[in-house]
Each structure stands twice: as structure tokens, then as C-alpha cells.
Design a protein around this nucleic acid. Structure first.
Lengths: 247, 247
DNA sequence: CGAAGTTTTGAGGACCTTCAAAAGTTGTGG
DNA sequence: CCACAACTTTTGAAGGTCCTCAAAACTTCG
């Protein structure tokens, strides 16, 4: 189930370096982080609310969700994590998990111990800054998500979610032209949008009928990007591709 | 308009120290941060989307909001900041603001330059860790906000917002028994809840009629806390009063 | 091929919105 | 200190978005 390998961190290192260079020493410290690869099935809980995890995880492949549960059994997904994302940097400093992490698809994840993350962060201020920045972009995504469920109707919210995923997947080279895989059921997607599965289904039908998207067995194709962007009111600004302030 | 004074940082220092002690040197470094007091009127923009601010601000008194605007003129408030909160730690590392900051009431704010924050953070790893933790709690509040607008109906969402404010104000000693001041118009509150002003008005009337709260010229009194907590599904866990992991 | 899960369809109803106007409150200047 | 203007809260009514329940059609997988 869990094996120790080299090079497991490189997707995350790539992501951090796309935002600015590291010194050779810092680069090496990240590469040398002890990491364990773990394979998880679809719909598996990785962290439950109330847990006190001792590791963060990096997505190697697949899609994870971060979600909060409600007393009535409802679930609100607050973000999706894709390959190259460090999930739950939160738990490095916050002892008790206030939200759950679950695999929405079968996935491979890389476990990295908090103690090791804290060590490299304190030894290399540039790493501390990169991790802090990553946390800040996380926050920006949460804010946009709030706008999505709070102020956009189902059509533009759905369009916005698809465009965010498309944009982030493209950043990692995980799209093929205007198409990307999204092997997530409508029921789970509706938990991300704060709407009912039935209504999401009708919304998707409308997006297809308008010629904005096509879906084929969990492959989404953007057919009319301009119209979709206009409907969603999407800009990638909040994802901060420009990277952190450099000193 | 702007004056340099001593002791302006102490409310924030108190907040950070409530989560764990600092070394004397770190404590002094925070106290010595150059700060300027600024008085702002109600409904004044402090940061606009697209700005590149060079300072973060600490709330000395009053309430600020962080919000995102929509193409159609709509507005979604994603959090309120009260006395002792450091607002926009985000902009320390993120150059371009992806959201606005506005005074919801008349307020006094303390401006602290990013360069100074970065300096003390890099000189004192314990400060860097405290600021990172603060950012993580910020993220937790955004997530809960997403749940509020996404999965709770107007009644429980409103109850939840009031309880969050009550809890945070109590932490700072800004409540009087079960009452606290909330000098914010219903129109602005509805922007925080993602509902229309008219519907918020009816929701507040319902909360009053049920005997859960009383409102008197912008003073909110919690009359039946147990029922309000049950309605909202509120716990303070996500606000992480326990503080960060200690090494 | 059967079982389990997922998507789709239908219908009725609840929640929330919009528009418009009245009633109440606050702030300011004469 | 009152009068007026501006703003905020409240009320009413009609309509749209979205929800729930329930069942049928379609996929996927063992």
C-alpha cells in the first residue's frame, strides 16, 4: 500500500517553481523530503473532520475533494485538488481537521509528514514563503467558491467551476485541447455547487443545448469558450498565476 | 489623517499570544513594527480589486468586510474583520488584490507595511508561523462561509453568521452579556449571506418572532442560544481557539 | 447477464427574488 | 429644535429558480 520512492515530490516542486526559482539548497531540501506513495480507491476518506493527521498529502493523480458535512447529512465541497496540489497544508499547523478530505476518483497520493515540512520551512525561509503563498492561493480559491455558491445562479456557477478546473488542469498539462477528464458523478459535482443533483443535471443539459460544452462519458469539452467565460464571469486572476512577491 | 503611535499593534499581539507565547525578542519585534493609524468613514473602500497595496491593515475599531464584486453589480462579502484582526495578510505575498476591502462601519485601522511584516517574519520563524496560522484560520472561516451560503437556508445561515460574530467579538471582549453591536445595514448583511435584502428582513423577523434574538437599533441580543446554535448547526471548532501546533 | 450505480424525466411545492411603495429612522442645516 | 432629505426597514404581491420525491432509462462492472 505504501512505498518509499524518489521523485514523488517533483510535481509539487514544478508547481512551486513555476512561481519563482528556488536556491539549489532549498530545491534539494524539497526533493529530499521523505514521501510515501499511497493508492486510494474512489470515494475513500483520507481525512475526517475531527482527525488529527500527522501528514499532509500531495496529489499524484486523480481528484480529491475538501468538504464540510452538515448535521442533516448534507455535504459542501469547498475545493477540488488535482495532480500537483498539496492538500491540507492546513494541518501542518492546525491540529484538528475542521473539514474532510476524500478521493472523488481513484487516486495516487504522496504522504509527507508535518514534522518534515516544518523542518524544511524553518531551515529555508524561501520554502516557508512558498508554502505560505500556496496557502494564500488556497484562500483565494475558497473565496471564489463562496461567490460561486452564493451569488451565481446554477448555470453560471457550473460554467465557472468547469472553467476553473479546465484552467488548473491546463496549467499542469492535463488537458487535451479543450477537453479534460472529469470522472466525477453529478451527485458529487452538485455538492460542490451547492445545488441538488437533479438541478445540476438540468443545468448541464442546458449548457449542452446552448452549445457551450459537450460531455462524453466523463470527458468535458469546451465548445464555446467565449460564451462560457461570459456566462461564468470567469477570470483566472484569483488563481494568481503571477506567483508571489519576490524580494 | 495618519499618525504614528506606539501600542497600536497590541490588539493583534494579544490575539496572537492567546494562541501561544512568543519569545521576548519576537514579542518586541512585533511591538516595534512601524504603524500608522488611519480613520475611515463608513462604506469607504480600503482596497479595490486590482490594487497592489503596499500595506496590510489591522482593525483597531469598527468592522471591515472583504468582498468580491460580480459583473452584474452584485457583491458577495466573504468575511467580516473585527478589532484585533489583521486584514489582508494575503497582500503581503500576493501582489494583485483579488478582492476588495471596505469599511462597513466607521473604523480606525492600523496600517503596517508589507516590507516590515516580511522582515519580522524572516527574522523570527515563530512570527512567520503565527502569521501562517492566522492565514490558515482565515481559510477555515472562508470554508465555513461557503457552507453557509451554499448549504444552509436563510434562517440557519443568518443564525450562523450572528453566532460567528458573537463568538469572535466575545473572544475580544467586545460583547456585553449576550448582546453585541452590529451597526451594519440589512442590505450589507444580505451581501454576506448571499440572499436578497428583502428576504433577510423577513428572516430576521422570523428569528425575532421565534424568540431567538432581539434587535434594538443595531444591537443584537441572543435570547435563546441553544435554539440558535441548533438552528445554525454552529460549533466554534473551525475558528480554532486551540491555537497552532507547538514545537 | 444481472446488479448496482448514474443520469434523466416528470410533477408539485418551497424558498427566495424582484419590483414597488409605505413606514420608520437618522442626520443635517436653517 | 424642528424640518427636510436621505437612508433603512418593512410590507405586499407575483413570479422564477431550485428542491423533493419518485420512477424510468441508461451505464458500468463483476
Amino acid at each position: 500500500m505504501a512505498t518509499v520512492c524518489d521523485g514523488l515530490i517533483s510535481p509539487y516542486l514544478d508547481k512551486l517553481e513555476s512561481r519563482g526559482p528556488f536556491s539549489p539548497a532549498a530545491r534539494q531540501a524539497i526533493t529530499d523530503l521523505p514521501a510515501k506513495l499511497r493508492t486510494v480507491a474512489r470515494a475513500e476518506d483520507i481525512v475526517r473532520e475531527g482527525d488529527e493527521p500527522h501528514s499532509s498529502c500531495l496529489v499524484h493523480s486523480g481528484i480529491l475533494s475538501r468538504y464540510k458535512s452538515l448535521p442533516d447529512g448534507g455535504r459542501q465541497i469547498v475545493s477540488f485538488s488535482i495532480a500537483g496540489d498539496m492538500v491540507d497544508l492546513q494541518s501542518v499547523l492546525v491540529l484538528v481537521a475542521d473539514h474532510g478530505i476524500r478521493s472523488e476518483t481513484a487516486a495516487k497520493i504522496v504522504m509527507i509528514r508535518h514534522a518534515d515540512i516544518l523542518r524544511v520551512a524553518s531551515e529555508h525561509p524561501e520554502i516557508a514563503r512558498a508554502l505560505w503563498f500556496d496557502t494564500l492561493v488556497d484562500g483565494a480559491i475558497f473565496r471564489e467558491w463562496t461567490v460561486n455558491v452564493g451569488r451565481r445562479d446554477a448555470r453560471s456557477a457550473t460554467a465557472h467551476l468547469l472553467l476553473e478546473l479546465d484552467w488548473r488542469l491546463t496549467q499542469r498539462g492535463l488537458t487535451a485541447g479543450d477537453s479534460f477528464e472529469l470522472p466525477i458523478s453529478q451527485a458529487d459535482l452538485s455538492d460542490a455547487l451547492g445545488i441538488s443533483p437533479v438541478h445540476l443535471n438540468r443545468t448541464l443539459q442546458w449548457l449542452r443545448a446552448e452549445g457551450l460544452i459537450r460531455t462524453n462519458s466523463h470527458v468535458v469539452t469546451v465548445l464555446n469558450r467565449d460564451a462560457l467565460v461570459a456566462l461564468a464571469g470567469f477570470t483566472s486572476d484569483y488563481l494568481h498565476p503571477e506567483g508571489p512577491r519576490m524580494l
